[in-house]
């Protein structure tokens, strides 16, 4: 079976500094692939190149869809072929592409992403955030929207249904009409994933989805990622520092260091891999060989974790939109 995403010889540099050098890996369809590596290894840069935010200096990024193969790099940053130098239509297309950029085309090809630092539309409600993600799916003709034609209303209702379905799946239905900026941090991260899902992707790229989450939330997240893979026909590419999460849910791990792929394979194979240990710990050999050292010590399977006791009472969250605290006399 051909992989969903093929990345070959991806190179990128900022000024004189090489951020990526010949990065090559594949993402199998229906699998969870994790990119790990020390800080500054170039993981997020890979994401930014994949999703068109950066123009890579060289390399190929191919997405295999049922309709055919899409060359993501070419779609986002088209280069003019010498034979087209005098072709007015090609020139016009090039100029238009240069003016408008092409990041949006990646999403249309079926790749969605989240960000390391949450990027929500904070002053908009949860549902509005999700509707923005579905802007392509709702009727776009101006007059239809202004006059609220039947087709427009139907399309809007369908979009809302889709948004609500995802919210329910992630247990956030109750927050549908809250402002995104008011949500607690863990929910904001979840909302960002839901928003990416609302663009209807085949490949979901998550940039450190567990950063800042507590162990319980991380566990819920890993269950959710597995569920997306198993029941929603999604392929997932994730960057993560939480080795526990990576080792437990991923099918394939790519290790990056100094902008190069130093190893890749199954999670188990990566745990004792000398190059990986060197990159993380600065030593080539496992520290204590017998029971597997270094990384393995951090790895605790989810099943062996003690059950999280129910909290004695929910934390006090004061919602300024419903409670008028200052009005209550002490």
């Amino acid at each position: 079976m051909t992989p969903l995403l093929t990345v070959r010889d991806l190179s990128m540099h900022f000024g004189g500094v090489a951020a990526l050098q010949g990065v090559t890996f594949t993402v199998a369809r229906g699998a969870i692939t994790a990119i790990i590596g020390p800080n500054g290894a170039g993981k997020t840069t890979v994401f930014n190149c994949l999703t068109g935010f950066y123009a890579a200096a060289a390399g190929v990024v191919r997405l295999q869809r049922e309709e055919g193969e899409i060359d993501l790099m070419r779609a986002v940053h088209p280069t003019l072929q010498p034979r087209d130098y005098l072709n007015p239509r090609a020139l016009a297309r090039q100029a238009y592409g240069w003016m408008t950029g092409g990041t949006h085309k990646v999403v249309r090809a079926g790749v969605a992403r989240t960000f390391q630092n949450v990027r929500l539309f904070r002053d908009m409600t949860v549902l509005e955030n999700l509707l923005v993600a579905q802007h392509r799916l709702v009727e776009r003709r101006l007059w239809a929207g202004i006059l609220r034609t039947r087709e427009y209303l139907a399309a809007e209702a369908a979009a809302l249904d889709r948004a609500v379905a995802w919210l329910e799946l992630f247990g956030m239905f109750e927050d549908a009409n809250r402002l995104a900026g008011e949500l607690p941090y863990g929910q904001q991260r979840r909302l960002e994933i839901i928003r990416a899902l609302c663009t209807d992707p085949v490949l979901l790229c998550l940039d450190e989805p567990a950063a800042g989450l507590n162990p319980r939330e991380t566990q819920a997240l890993s269950r959710m990622i597995l569920r997306l893979r198993d029941h929603h026909d999604l392929t997932i590419l994730l960057i993560e520092h939480d080795m526990n999460l990576v080792m437990n849910i991923s099918d394939h791990v790519v290790v990056l260091d100094h902008g190069e792929v130093i190893a890749s394979g199954t999670p188990a194979a990566m745990q004792g891999h000398p190059a990986v240990l060197e990159a993380y710990l600065g030593v080539a050999e496992p520290v204590d060989g017998a029971s597997g050292g270094g990384l393995r010590e951090e790895v605790v399977p989810v099943s062996s974790l003690p059950p999280v006791p129910p909290k004695p009472r929910p934390p006090l969250i004061i919602d300024p939109s419903v409670a008028d605290i200052e009005a209550c006399p002490p």
């Binding site: 408008t100 950029g101 663009t199």
Partner: peptide, 9 residues
């Protein structure tokens, strides 16, 4: 940036 990541030109 979030907008661009959602397919908005």
């Amino acid at each position: 940036i979030a907008c661009r990541s959602l397919g908005i030109n």
